[in-house]
Computed example of a mutant assay.
Amino acid sequence: MGYGELIIRSYDPQYDRTRVEDFERKCEVGPAKRVFLFTDTLGDPICRIRNSPIYKMLVAELGNQLVGVIQGSIKLVTVHKPPNDLAKVGYILGLRVSSLYRRRGIGSSLVIKLEEWFIANDVDYAYMATEKDNKASVKLFVDRLSYVKFQTPTILVNPVSHRMSRISSNVELAKLKVEEAEAIYRKFMSSTEFFPIDIGNILRNKLSLGTWAAYPRGESWSGVPSSWAMLSVWNSGELFKLRLGNAPLSCLMYTKSSRLIEKLVPCVKLPCIPDFFRPFGFYFIYGVYREGPLSGKLVRTLCRFVHNMASKSKDCKVIVTEVGGSDTSRLHIPHWKSLSCPEDLWCIKALKNEKKNSLHELTKTPPTRALFVDPREV
């Protein structure tokens, strides 16, 4: 049975918006068994890439049927030994293929077409992120398209409750001006792989709620505290919403019973799961950095502060943080193990022959302690 010729073209908002929105609603996110996340892009299918310097969305059609989509963005970052080395990188995200048309090469065709756009824009490396256990994605990118493992960050997810977290009286919190935050990030994090050169644009974006620093009370921020930590917050819920689907009955029963117990017996400290079955937003913590013997405690205090900020939002149900797999800051960031991903797999591919040797060195170099995850790529 023939399905016609596969056509891959650029996304046309006037013609494709409604079709892509409907297509996305039917596609689950992630390979988890029995539990799926569905996205609501709030009428803007390219919302996840719109804040990137350069971006593009491709759609795949068989006949008049929309069968696949993919998105990509391009930016300039530091690589290997910054700030001396810079590279233009293309990020691949949002690859979706209709369940009725899988295993027909549509996914690989979309990736290859996007790579051609990267090459036309002088991109040095293409990279993507997926769950380590997503066998279909790993097989496509690593086995078929020659991508190699680059990093294995940890994604930490913490539910937001209406209870306010206690902030230690021994810690001083300060909201940093954009210029100050930018200067600190450039000084301390520009030595990390893939640090975005346009960090100032990220911090000035309307979705960035601010940057905060924590240090011991009694010490001076301007005088370089003995210990300090900082992080920034991005309001991803303004771009798109998430919804849980196909959850186990036990999870649904626990959600409802925990709320009932909390109302009847508020003194009982039973963890309460937010209502994930209706569309919800989330805050993304990025740019986590710390120095000094007490910095772990300071990171935890900052995370509690962000939780209290999120608890005042009717829409924010979870706080998400992504840190390097070897970054011990993850031990101090509150999260639920059942909701988190211990190993998110980043894969990379050199698009220029002269970059292939540096790619080998790049992937074999032990990852730095800190990792700056661009919130525009969440």
Rank of each mutant, 00 (worst) to 15 (best):
R25L: 06
D133E: 13
L156M: 14
L260I: 14
L86E: 08
W336Y: 13
V299G: 08
A129D: 08
S250F: 09
G223A: 14
M253C: 12
T78F: 14
V123F: 06
F141H: 12
K56I: 10
V265E: 06
G105A: 05
S326P: 00
W234M: 02
V59W: 04
S137V: 11
G30W: 03
L42I: 07
P159V: 12
R259K: 15
R103K: 12
K135T: 13
Y289H: 15
G292D: 06
I197N: 09
I261C: 02
M189R: 03
R330N: 09
N64F: 04
Y286F: 15
R102N: 03
I202N: 05
F23Y: 09
E193N: 14
R369G: 11
R103V: 05
V224N: 12
P367E: 07
K206N: 05
R103Q: 13
P53V: 01
L239R: 15
R102L: 00
E172N: 12
G245N: 09
L371H: 08
M309S: 10
K177D: 12
C27M: 15
T152A: 04
E115T: 07
M189Q: 12
S165Q: 15
V160Q: 03
E354M: 02
G43R: 10
R304S: 12
P159M: 07
D374H: 02
L203Q: 05
R25S: 11
G200Q: 12
R163M: 06
L37Q: 08
P334V: 08
E193F: 06
K75N: 11
W346T: 10
T39N: 07
G324L: 03
D44P: 00
V35C: 09
P45A: 04
R102A: 00
K81F: 06
R96V: 07
I70Y: 01
V233I: 15
K113L: 02
T301L: 01
S227V: 09
V224H: 07
V97F: 01
K314W: 09
N51G: 10
P13I: 01
F305K: 13
Y215R: 06
S257R: 00
V318Q: 11
R48T: 15
P248S: 04
T192R: 03
N51H: 15
H162M: 10
R102V: 02
S258F: 05
K149D: 14
T321F: 01
P225C: 10
R186F: 00
A310F: 03
S257M: 14
K349L: 03
D327E: 05
C47A: 14
F23V: 09
N158P: 00
R9Y: 00
R50C: 02
L6D: 01
P159C: 08
A60C: 08
D122Q: 12
H332C: 13
A87E: 12
V67T: 13
